[in-house]
Nucleic acid binder design. Structure first.
Lengths: 199, 199
DNA sequence: TAAGATACTGAACGTTTATTCAGTATTATA
DNA sequence: TATAATACTGAATAAACGTTCAGTATCTTA
């Protein structure tokens, strides 16, 4: 293994980790390069050696999250027999991931501020759409399996996303167990809310 | 009526309105004084004549929202006979208010960034607690009236808040009718989710 | 081991930002 | 109407910020 490549990989990860935490905590604009420099323990120039600029670093983090999610989910999904199980599994993962929801407040802030280059804007739009589609497909599968009966799948996909997104804010001030419980309860309320009428 | 007082009131409102819209759109940090100056059509100095500083302006907006909410709610609450009706009424109000949720992403960003003076921190903490308490009391009333049966009221108060908060983000890109429908559906899912088992 | 490539430093630069303040216009007061 | 109080202006200031770059250290390659 090339020692330089290894070094690059390592520091790139160190920067990414520091940046992710800070962005999630403080938001995009409020996180300065100097903040990241201090947290990562490297120079400002080094950040610009590994990433095009602050925007590029942020986009990298978003896409990195996506990659990891796809990978993790692909492996985990099979373990859950029903859609209901899958939804609980998803809730658990999001609860434990901490920096969980992809559309964090930072992304939202990032997205809504000042004009981005059209290609950047499109990439973000696609991501947001992707999250909703993900929910929608999951819910649709539950309908197909007759686990629940709902009319407006796309609206419910948004509602599910809203619930998880909002929960992410509150649970940031909670302990691990409390967080897990909150996510589980949220999913239970949601599922009960869309359940087939008992018979 | 004093003409000076009138003038002060008017421009203070003009600044507050402009700032509120911008903060809600772009977030706290990303909204510059110059942005507000342009939107309000006054000088930078004038803002500092009416408000202590940017932080003071923001806190004023938060507390202003609270005042208005208390007032509106006090008047509206009586019109709704059951707790379920009240919750739907609340959803409708939040949907139509646009800059609706008090704990917008701007507040969240504001709150999480850098140390605030202890008194400021406490004021914000009290506000957040207030929103949750509001939900909790409403839900408790529903339980007392035997409209629904739930065990963990305080957790559900947070879940309700999460749902409404998250929805606020998504509906910002929706039209009026779509927004209303989304809030109504969200509340229906929530209520169905905590409903007494049908018998 | 010499030469080139790669990884990194940190001071410097130009912008943007919140905030101030000396000065001006408008209104209230006596 | 003269004087004081209030409302406001906008250029100046200093701090913070993202970004660059000449230079240095480390590693790869031939």
């Amino acid at each position: 293994m090339n020692k330089k490549k290894q070094q690059t990989e390592q520091t790139k990860k160190k920067i990414a980790d520091a940046a992710r935490t800070l962005f999630a905590q403080k938001g995009y604009k409020a996180t300065s390069i100097e903040d990241i420099v201090n947290a990562a323990g490297c120079s400002a120039g080094n950040i610009y050696y590994h990433f095009k600029n602050k925007e590029g670093l942020f986009l990298y983090l978003l896409e990195d999250w996506n990659r990891e999610w796809d990978q993790t989910w692909l492996a985990k999904e099979k373990l859950y027999p029903t859609t209901v199980d899958k939804l609980f599994g998803m809730a658990e993962y999001l609860a434990l991931d901490q920096l969980s929801h992809p559309l964090t407040k930072a992304s939202d802030e990032f997205f809504n501020n000042s004009e981005k280059a059209p290609d950047v804007e499109e990439r973000i739009n696609n991501m947001v759409k992707g999250y909703i589609d993900f929910n929608q497909q999951l819910l649709q599968k539950g309908i197909d399996n007759q686990e629940f009966e709902i009319a407006d799948v796309s609206s419910l996909a948004i509602i599910l996303d809203s619930l998880l997104f909002g929960l992410n804010l509150h649970t940031r001030r909670m302990e691990r167990e409390e967080t897990l419980a909150a996510y589980r309860l949220a999913m239970r309320v949601f599922l009960h809310g869309i359940a087939k009428p008992a018979r």
